[in-house]
Design a protein around this nucleic acid. Structure first.
Lengths: 156, 156
DNA sequence: ATATAAAACTTTAAGCTTGAAATATTTTAC
DNA sequence: GTAAAATATTTCAAGCTTAAAGTTTTATAT
């Protein structure tokens, strides 16, 4: 996946392969740095941050299945992360009256306060880590990635 | 991390934050698809593929520490993956005469053959998954990501 | 020479991740 | 009305991942 710079392959399809490798290395590098800072500064993890970020947008809460779909991870995965956040008092589960299979998950007051602080730091880090990307390039790159994404939505 | 499309934040630094979110979602989407195909078609995993891809470039082998540095993962992580590949006969460890702390890790003949087949399929998948990105955009995007990467190398 | 530090690697504990199986509930089809 | 299918979620086993601590070997400084 993170294949090599050495022989510099060429031929049809190689440009896209090279793009993929760069994309993956860039995101892994940034992810590793964020992970480390979240741990050091706030004693939390990237998956916890992701869940809280998703919930922060929607004060009334989300269903577990919406959460896992939004985060692009499996159902069982979210269960574990939410379990831990609940045990720390940052997130609450609420069974619904209507459909007793589902449970609404939302940030607690403490979780909301806590996330707001972390998110501010996070945004600063991204500004720092991507600082060398010009605003114009950032918008252009975002545009390309967005059109890529739209080709994918609703697949399978 | 994979934060939301809904309120569309604005302000200074938001362009870079949006870029990061798009970057992360794109790589996670592709990664998930590759993971699934590797499992279904070849009964293997992305981390195993990554390790084999790294070794494939260097027939004489790599040190464990070079491998983990190259793959951007921790030392202990590589130990486990290589252990499993060795037990499957795809990879071999060889203690060196000179420095007895190190061990040279390389693909076995079987591992080389096996990887060549998987890599061909993998390249086709990338072509398919990134098919909507024009060759020109691919090169431009790669260029941007490369310059970003060079800002990072040798950090910490 | 010998203590100290550095380097290469493995082990460990805790947490993340997936796909598949299990449970509980609701909806659909006769 | 009831059996079957669909939906929402959790549980489970296996594997991935990290940071920190531990082991062995080599290099450095006195």
């Amino acid at each position: 996946m993170v294949a090599g710079p050495l022989p510099a392959p060429s031929g049809p399809g190689k440009d896209r392969l090279r793009l993929w490798i760069r994309l993956l290395r860039a995101s892994r590098t940034i992810e590793a740095e964020l992970r480390e800072r979240l741990k050091k500064e706030f004693d939390t993890t990237l998956p916890r941050f992701d869940v809280m970020a998703a919930l922060y947008r929607v004060p009334e809460g989300m269903l577990m299945s919406d959460l896992s779909r939004f985060l692009l991870v499996s159902n069982g995965n979210v269960t574990g992360i939410v379990d831990r956040l609940v045990s720390e008092g940052l997130v609450a589960r609420a069974r619904r009256n209507g459909d007793r299979r589902t449970s609404m998950v939302r940030l607690t007051e403490e979780g909301t306060k806590s996330f707001a602080i972390i998110a501010a730091a996070h945004e600063g880090w991204i500004g720092e880590l991507l600082g060398k990307v010009s605003e114009e390039d950032a918008r252009r790159l975002t545009g390309m990635l967005t059109s890529f994404r739209s080709n994918w939505e609703g697949r399978e």
